[in-house]
Write a protein that binds this DNA or RNA. Structure first.
Lengths: 335, 335
DNA sequence: TTGAAAGCGCTAACAT
DNA sequence: ATGTTAGCGCTTTCAA
């Protein structure tokens, strides 16, 4: 078995009888090389299976043609939308997208940013758990765009949680609920904080009581603990940090014989794919995740091209998708 | 705003009052440098926020410290397990994992392999749609491991579909079904072919009739077309290419008033997260996806270290998870 | 133990 | 239009 050996630009140059720089130009400056030689060079390259080495290219230009997207949990379907959108936008810009899973862990995230930093042209940090200060420093070394996280001086695209939480509260209030419980996610979660703040404000406006439980793991696995707390508290309406937690809660409630929405109404955030086929189907606040991913990539690309002085903040609308997990309040609490 | 400027090895060397090579050694050959100088160098590097440039490193060594994992659809929760496992194994080996979405598209996949090839130390190709010949050629340029795909001369880890399909058929037969319909996925899908072949063989053994419909898009969106075909054919049991399609089928059946499992039993493949919270919960063949991802990464790493003459094939067990979507056959067909 | 120098593959001046 | 040369950041001989 022959040793693995890739053809280099010099191999192509030799085989084509031209200088390496001509080969380089044939690939990168189609205009500045004779039509014939260009075709010849490309043919030879094709035959040799030559592909430019991005590492070498990066060394010279400082550009790697690669963007990194870091998410807290690749398994969470919420991020599928962000990833999809980011990938589409990156492909459109001729860039490769690298994905990293930070495992909801600021340490892991920091390490990835540091390690990947020199290897990529920029970062999209989705639901970053990094403290403001660290984000600021990271933004000095690489173009960065944040998704659902805001910090001064860093580009970001965020969902409109103020409007969204108001929609949730109004919906619950119109069903007769007088109080709600928020099931909190990770304490470092910026959107978690925004959701909670929004709920409080909206509830105050509508005259509802709000309490926060948690923090819970924002996955199916966080469901039982949260659901049990809900039952113990006799709540009639709960708003979960995200859909995965909401679904986990509904599973546990079903196990314990508590009806949704008859006894308890459940609302999630994200509108993940599963929200339309869980049981009952989940009322949830939909974000435009694909858009968010795409806009964030565009923001990074913009920074790569020209360094704007004050990076933009984009707010994306949210809308409440009402399904079967919410209903009129019952006068008698569960149990 | 100052221009973005990363510290290089020479900056560190100058600041520490040593040669660049010493800095290099301090990072890569801890033994071959004086304990004191090493500590000093590392401290200076830390202060300057220096991180070695992987591109430059790669240029010399040919190693990039990066592995690429290509999946047909990052949105499909099935791949979450593979990704998770691959990420864990890559991290354990000190490697960065790059993810690529091939959009179920061989052309896209080929382009990614070609483009990423020089930038990574190896590939894990999950459910690759590439023809054998192209896989073979790609394997000459980069270490490759396949997940749920086999081709001579390339390392692979596959699920035991022979046993799995037998479990499915036996389960359905024991419920009294005398015939089943397979709802096919993408024609290029190797595991799709294996699933169909396995079902045919197992059905022959058990004396069941089998038919194949499709191909259908292996997502929720493929459900309606498949479900309508199922209803038209009056089938009592269907086995879908994967869980997403199965769930899509169940949604459509519910819309059309066909009961699952009362009128039709539905079986999926993959045991994605949603399978335990869709309605009814889905009977499906579980694979050890995390293991598969991890084993595949290990296989690639092994090839990076020493080039084995005959790369291994690993078969991972599968098990049927029986939930609520399958039940006894009814004598009267739906409609 | 450390430094000096060469070179990895490629691109960008500069020269022709 | 094309060739020559230098150098990107790093590792690796080879000397000292």
């Amino acid at each position: 078995m022959p040793p693995r050996k890739r053809a280099t630009i010099t191999d192509v140059a030799a085989a084509a009888g031209v200088a390496a720089s001509t080969v380089s130009r044939a690939f990168t400056r189609p205009g500045r090389v004779n039509q014939h030689t260009r075709e010849h060079v490309l043919a030879v390259a094709e035959e040799l299976g030559y592909a430019p080495n991005p590492a070498a290219r990066a060394l010279e230009s400082g550009r790697t043609g690669t963007l990194a997207l870091l998410v807290p949990d690749i398994t969470n379907p919420y991020f599928s939308g962000v990833i999809k959108g980011a990938e589409r936008a990156a492909a459109a810009a001729g860039l490769t997208l690298v994905l990293g899973d930070t495992a909801e862990n600021p340490g892991q995230e920091e390490q990835l940013v540091r390690r990947l930093g020199p290897a990529v042209d920029g970062f999209v940090l989705s639901a970053s758990r990094l403290p403001d200060e660290q984000l600021r420093r990271a933004a000095e070394l690489n173009p960065i765009a944040l998704v659902n996280r805001a910090t001064p001086g860093v580009a970001c695209v965020v969902a409109d949680f103020d409007s969204g939480t108001r929609q949730i509260v109004d919906h619950l209030a119109s069903l007769g609920h007088r109080a709600l419980v928020f099931l909190g996610g990770p304490p470092e979660s910026w959107s978690g904080a925004r959701r909670w703040a929004g709920l409080q404000a909206a509830a105050a406006r509508a005259g509802l009581e709000v309490r926060r439980f948690g923090p819970y793991v924002p996955t199916l696995g966080g469901g039982p603990a949260a659901a049990d707390a809900v039952i113990a508290a006799g709540a009639t309406a709960v708003v979960a940090h995200n859909d995965m937690l909401a679904i986990g809660v509904m599973q546990r409630l079903a196990e314990r014989g508590v009806g949704v929405p008859t006894d308890v109404s459940v609302v999630g955030f994200d509108d993940i794919v599963g929200a339309e086929f869980c049981h009952p189907t989940l009322t949830t606040l939909a974000e435009r995740t694909e858009d968010a991913g795409a806009r964030a990539v565009e923001a990074v690309v913009a920074q790569v091209l020209t360094r704007a002085s004050e990076p933009p903040t984009r707010v994306l609308p949210t809308q409440l998708v009402v399904r079967r997990s919410t209903g009129p309040v019952h006068t008698a609490p569960p149990n």
